[in-house]
Design a protein around this nucleic acid. Sequence first.
DNA 1: GAGTGGTCTAGACCACTGT
DNA 2: CAGTGGTCTAGACCACTCT
Lengths: 236, 236
Amino acid sequence: MLKYQSVAQSIEHEIQTKDLTQGERLPSLTELMTQYNTSKSTIIKALDVLEKNNRIFQVRGSGIFVRRNQRKGLIDLQTNRGFSSDMEDARLSAKVLSFAKVTPTNEICQHLRCSPDEPVFHVKRLRLKDNKILCVEDSYYLTTVVPYLNTEILEHSIFEYLKTSYQLQVGFSEKYLSVGKLSQSNADYLTLSIDDPCLITHEIFYSRNGVPFDYSTNTYHYLNANFFLQITNTTI
Amino acid sequence: MLKYQSVAQSIEHEIQTKDLTQGERLPSLTELMTQYNTSKSTIIKALDVLEKNNRIFQVRGSGIFVRRNQRKGLIDLQTNRGFSSDMEDARLSAKVLSFAKVTPTNEICQHLRCSPDEPVFHVKRLRLKDNKILCVEDSYYLTTVVPYLNTEILEHSIFEYLKTSYQLQVGFSEKYLSVGKLSQSNADYLTLSIDDPCLITHEIFYSRNGVPFDYSTNTYHYLNANFFLQITNTTI
DNA sequence: GAGTGGTCTAGACCACTGT
DNA sequence: CAGTGGTCTAGACCACTCT
């Protein structure tokens, strides 16, 4: 564990345990330096991490303040772990609808930058939270990056499996969102009616060295799924 | 202009003019140091800015690579400028539907952390892009922070006005997204039918020192508005 | 003017990737 | 093993806020 990471975790822990609310002030830079017995730059680096994660905001000449948010039960659009691995996300589950090696369509080849000759895994799952249906998920995985999958893995977290078994972590991802009307088949899966509204997302997941390996389409239940996102202003 | 900012801009400019594609490699840290005649930390800071803005990704032991994205015509969920002020966003416009000082409801008071005695500005606008209707926007502004508005301003960018006239910049914001069915009145504004699908967003904008001053609800045209977002993995 | 966050430097050392 | 990005330090100096 790096020094700045442990400082960041420790400050985060303070915020949680003291249950600080939005706008409450943290110790100053110099105080944090002596408190953690480290250099100014390391503290700044730790604070940058917290700021990037929307936990604090810094005001020049004034101080460091807590940023609080996350209404409960909302889906955080800014994580790229699929869904799982948050504290309270134990209540999430997945039901495998189908699972097979298939020949990729042109669209998939384009997003995963692969040739039509390479087969890919196609996984269709129903995602649930507290037994309420969240969405239908259609995922395609590059077999060159993800050589093996089984239903056991698919019922839990794929990304968790990839991390522990292959040291493969998501580096970054892209999401595309649109709104539409449900097809008959998706309406059936979501126990809604045809032409009911839905949010459709297309996501591409890249490894840490920039290789796309997962292309997924999600169709969300318009009543059970709500989303949030936090933005910090930066100017290039 | 700070040194790291000008370095960041300069690298960004290189990417644009050379039209580098995703995955193309940039000069190494040491090369950039000599090229810009500055210290390692300053280069790192510049690269951090670019990384935060999803323009590059860095791979330890390997190099610095271009990250390219932005399909055209999509709404970037990660900006907090309302809409305007991108290069190609000149094509965006607004039509004022109504504009008045009103007494805030409880919901608004809560989000803007104000008392029900303080009047707030209520602005209702139709947002258009290339004369295609994007959304209906309902905004509430704290009069303590935004003391004056007029239709002239509202037809252009409010945030631009706040910046130039009051040195007021958005520090950060929150967005909440959900999907629903159109009411009759919103359907009329969007020239759609009642019960057609729509994306509804609630946004709270905070100044740089953490004061919420704008609470907005947007109802998007489900065919004309599409969205995207880029995520970089960070672990606290 | 005291206190706070932010920039910038030079340099030592570490950790990972590729060949 | 050479080259690359990443961590950490100590210290000088700058810019802003608050009262």
